[in-house]
Each structure stands twice: as C-alpha cells, then as structure tokens.
Amino acid sequence: MMEATKVLDAKGLACPMPIVRTKKAMEELNSGDVLEIHATDKGSKSDLTAWVKSGGHTMLKEAEEGDVFKFWIQKA
C-alpha cells in the first residue's frame, strides 16, 4: 500500500468541484508525491482518469468502497 502524502476529501462535491480541488491540492505537492482522493460524484472516475492523463501524472490505484470512489495519484 502506497503512502499518500495528502488526502483530499471531495465527498459530496459535484462537478466541477472534485477536479478543481484536485488541481489545487496537486499544486501543493512535490513531484513524486501521492494524493489520495475520496469522491462520491459518479463522474469522478472518468474525470480524474482524463485529468491525470492530460497532466502526465500517474493513476497508481483506484478503489470503490460503497458509494465512495478512491484514487491515488502520483504527481509527475
């Protein structure tokens, strides 16, 4: 299990907030750091996958726990 440098709670937030918060959180991290995101927006999987790809970051892991989608993103 990778160590997250930071955890972003985006639960309950609707589009476009999860991605806006993710961008802000990533700005505070260094290259190689891992951001863990918890979201409930059903679009967050597609949104974050596309955003990570565009920014050149790496999606290390995704998980679903009940209604909560979890993502671990490593900053490029």
Partner: peptide, 11 residues
C-alpha cells in the same frame, strides 16, 4: 461556467 472552471483545472 462549469466548462470554464473545468478547463482552468486543466491548467
């Protein structure tokens, strides 16, 4: 405005 904010999140 949602698209604009999303695009801003895409830098």
């Amino acid at each position: 405005y949602i698209i604009a904010n999303g695009a801003a999140a895409y830098d």
